Amino acid sequence: MKKLLLMITFISLSQIKAQIDPLKYPTFTNIEDAVKSDKPVYSISFRDKGLFNIPKDIVKMNSLFFLNVMGNNLEKIDQEIFTLKELEILNLSANSIKFIPNEIGELKKLHTLSINLNSLTKINPNLAKLQSLKTVHFDANNLNVFPEALLEISSLEEINLSNNQISFVSQDLNKIKNLKYLNLSSNQINDLAEVRFPKNIKYLELQQNAIVGLPEFLFKSENIEFLNVSHNNLKEISHKVKGLKNVVSINLANNQLKDLPKEFSQLKNLKTLILAGNPMDQETIKKLKELMPRTQIYF
């Protein structure tokens, strides 16, 4: 599993780097060359260097906006990083970081923060000071609640908290008004009854939890296109599912569903519906195929 998460992290990083013009913003891979450069240094990658600490001379990089320290041996976030006021993208994934210092709030221009595959047990409230943040990856840590600080950052568009130990999710998720992608898969969530999801959310991943029912507020999320609630404990789906007017794909595999409400026929944009691993008899399967002739259903 860790190798898979590491591969996904690498792919995400590659996508970020693809947005950086290598001619205009060459990426340095050691501090010595960066210090010697007669031009401003915008991008540095110390990926897989076996580092236990950030090189002290990083403080000289006043123009740095991209810093990758993925795959090292950091147990803390060194203070030198917080002097980099122009930093926009910070990748600290696959280290052994246990906490986020208060100084995180000083990186005002940060819009992408990745501290996945570490040992975090909580998120510092000062993260809420980063009002330019659009993407956070805290997956594969040891978090047990949805970080309250994230609720104060309305600019967030993507949150990945998968593979933690989260059992509680705040009902005020809708405060993150611009959120489009939320991954809460592989946690310990069983109750979402009062959770209000942001109206702009498009991708919602809730698979591999212990969810027994979907909240009424979810079915008011008209912009959802992809919904994954597979590998949970759902026994029924509300007729209010008809509110998901723009949904394209729903994965309900490996639950306890014996049937679906007829309102599924009103989901005119639904292209794919996955129901494998549910206790549905042949009569129900036949009925659902007739109910949704334009939807590819996998039993």
Rank of each mutant, 00 (worst) to 15 (best):
N183L: 08
I250E: 03
N141T: 10
S114N: 15
Q282W: 06
A276S: 14
S45D: 10
F168V: 12
V241P: 01
L227Y: 03
A34W: 00
N246R: 10
I123Y: 01
L204M: 06
I58K: 02
L51A: 08
I250H: 05
K122W: 02
F82A: 02
V229L: 02
N144C: 05
L252C: 09
G50W: 07
N255A: 04
L288G: 03
I285A: 08
K286G: 06
Q266V: 07
V195F: 00
M280L: 13
N102S: 14
E216A: 01
L117Q: 13
N246S: 14
D191R: 09
K180M: 13
A18R: 15
K85Q: 03
L150C: 11
D78V: 05
K287W: 15
T295N: 11
L291K: 05
K245Q: 13
P261H: 07
M1F: 10
S230G: 10
S238G: 10
F10G: 09
N91M: 08
D259W: 04
P26L: 09
Q19K: 15
N116G: 15
E158F: 07
P261L: 10
D259A: 07
P279G: 09
K245D: 11
Q131R: 12
T272R: 10
N255P: 06
T112Q: 04
S37Q: 03
I153A: 00
R294E: 14
G277H: 06
P26E: 11
L107W: 00
Q165I: 08
F299D: 12
E86A: 07
R196E: 15
P293Q: 11
I274G: 01
L84A: 06
D33N: 14
A149P: 02
I100H: 00
N142L: 11
Q15C: 12
L120T: 07
M7I: 11
L64V: 11
F226H: 10
T9N: 10
K109R: 11
F219K: 03
E157Y: 04
Y42F: 14
I176W: 03
Q208P: 01
N255L: 05
I115R: 00
L252K: 02
N251R: 03
K268L: 13
F226G: 00
I81M: 02
N174S: 11
Y181F: 12
L90P: 00
L151V: 04
K286T: 15
I159H: 01
L179I: 11
N142Q: 14
P147Q: 07
D281Q: 13
L192Q: 06
N209P: 15
D78G: 15
L127Q: 09
I224M: 11
L260V: 14
I211C: 03
